[in-house]
Design a protein around this nucleic acid. Structure first.
Lengths: 136, 136
DNA sequence: CTACACCCTGTACCATACTACATAGTCAAG
DNA sequence: CTTGACTATGTAGTATGGTACAGGGTGTAG
């Protein structure tokens, strides 16, 4: 397979060329092989990595978080138990996010229902949506 | 009910005093009543609004987005059909986020399973996690 | 009636995550 | 063998979402 230039990678990953270089500086993407000219040469799999980063950002993960998620496979200095416990912690984070989103979704649905039924929308179900778990 | 000071509100909402004032400037919180001294006076319900903002941020919504979500009930210039169609659009966004998170969760679980089973973790299931819907 | 914690406005600064040059070299089509 | 799109490095600027003063007034407990 012919390697990709930075421009091809960026287009396929849905980000700008500058962003790719930025992610490289920040350690989210490995430094790729180079041609004699200095041009970066990327393999296909970097496209998936780039898309993962983009998606995860939309889900409220910081680049630091995303780096940790991606590091769960790469680092050979971590023991299996370490990897597992980190992954399990991430699973919990993710589950919380899912639940919060489900409450928002439910609230939004309620809003559309109220509306359909011509109930005045003076009350705001969205605000109740996230309350149940807020026990402080 | 006795109104809350900005400090009490901030503590209960889990943010800083400066953040409350910042949200007010940005239009996420309404300008509250004031005492003669100029002190802001908040009602209990603002606590829920503040917590909603905090949570929604963690889920990757921008303040602009959150403002829109909160506006779904307040704006009297919107027709019912408008409110409904906006809410339905938000429901779709939210559903996509939920699905993406579920894929990440699945991938993380797979990671912990592989680990438990002593399978080498050279492959990265996380990277496959978000691919299915990326059809571009 | 005086501490001390809290509030006011305004402005400046900060971290995160890009984004946009400036300046120079590369590559491929015609 | 040139021309135009692309790549390189480096540095500076931007948008978002706060955070931290400075300089002053308020409120209440002892």
């Amino acid at each position: 397979m012919k390697p990709l230039t930075i421009g091809q990678l960026a287009r396929r990953g849905g980000v700008g060329v500058e962003t790719v270089r930025f992610y490289e500086r920040e350690g989210l993407l490995e430094e790729p092989a180079r041609k004699e000219s200095g041009y970066r040469q990327y393999q296909e799999d970097v496209v998936a990595r780039l898309r993962f980063i983009r998606r995860a950002k939309e889900l409220g993960f910081s680049l630091k978080n995303i780096k940790e998620l991606l590091a769960l496979r790469v680092d050979p200095t971590m023991t299996c138990a370490e990897v597992r416990s980190r992954a399990e912690a991430k699973v919990e984070d993710v589950e919380e996010k899912i639940q919060a989103l489900q409450r928002i979704k439910k609230a939004l649905k309620k809003l559309t229902m109220n509306c359909r039924g011509r109930v005045p929308i003076s009350e705001c179900p969205i605000l109740e949506a996230l309350e149940p778990q807020e026990a402080d």
